[in-house]
């Protein structure tokens, strides 16, 4: 088994509260791995540690066997690890086109160019247009992000992360808060992500989890409570008791 993303004894304290408790996790290359758990289980904290938004108190994070525990977020993105946010973290004044242009230019290492004109990177503009079309954003490419319908903003969340060409993409509740009629579009985008991108899905929605994931880790009180294939997790009486049982 080749783990593309791995954590070793990851721990994060906030004062006396332990938000992440000795999490050792292996995500296989190309996996559709879901991270589930009740509210406050520490799912988002874990994603924040993985992507360098929060430093861990102790433990290690490895990407393709290389330690990245102390690298800043932008370096992790360059190495192929990126994420979306549960609550939109977008550039409010930018159009989807501008935001995606930014992400592609940074991926290509062109972001530090002081003297070039953004529009002169014709290949980048072409790629941005194709990416926006792929994520259902072509029709709104010139609208300000904060005026987009919520579903479109969620799609832009994913498009922005995808523009970095990640090897590992962490999706933090991609469909959270999306109205029912826009939900289908988000879900089909998520299930159509290319197979060579490893996807870690943090999700509450059990239908989405079981339709999408081939492997599931259950996080309870900051620690890994159970891990296995979707079928194993669905059949586990322990998981039902602490987690699924609540909603059943």
């Amino acid at each position: 088994m080749t783990a593309v993303l791995e954590t070793r004894d990851l721990k994060r304290r906030f004062g006396a509260f332990v938000a992440t408790n000795d999490v050792s996790l292996k995500i296989e290359r190309g996996a559709r791995h879901a991270l589930i758990g009740p509210n406050g289980a520490g799912k988002t904290t874990l994603v924040n540690i993985l992507t360098g938004v929060l430093p861990p108190t102790s433990g290690q994070v490895l990407l393709d066997g290389e330690e990245i525990t102390n690298l800043p977020s932008h370096t992790r993105v360059k190495k192929g690890l990126t994420r979306t946010f549960q609550i939109n973290q977008l550039f409010a004044d930018y159009t989807p086109l501008e935001a995606v242009m930014l992400a592609i230019l940074e991926r290509e290492g062109l972001g530090s160019r002081l003297w070039a004109v953004v529009g002169s990177y014709r290949k980048t503009v072409d790629e941005a247009a194709a990416l926006l079309a792929r994520f259902g954003l072509a029709s709104v490419m010139a609208d300000r992000t904060n005026r987009l319908p919520y579903g479109k903003q969620r799609l832009l969340e994913i498009a922005l992360a995808f523009a970095s060409k990640p090897r590992v993409l962490l999706l933090d509740e991609p469909a959270a808060g999306v109205p029912e009629d826009e939900r289908h579009e988000v879900l089909s985008i998520v299930s159509d992500l290319p197979a060579d991108v490893t996807v870690v899905l943090i999700e509450h929605d059990m239908d989405l989890v079981f339709s999408f994931a081939n492997r599931i880790s259950v996080l309870v009180a900051g620690a890994i409570f159970a891990e296995g294939t979707a079928a194993e997790i669905a059949a586990s009486p322990d998981v039902k008791a602490v987690y699924l049982g609540e909603s059943a």
């Binding site: 800043p72 360059k78 940074e106 972001g111 922005l160």
Partner: peptide, 16 residues
């Protein structure tokens, strides 16, 4: 302007 708007996200699209 992306940094100004949202520094955390800017870093996560690869902006140093």
């Amino acid at each position: 302007k992306a940094i100004k708007s949202n520094p955390v996200r800017a870093a996560l699209v690869g902006v140093p």
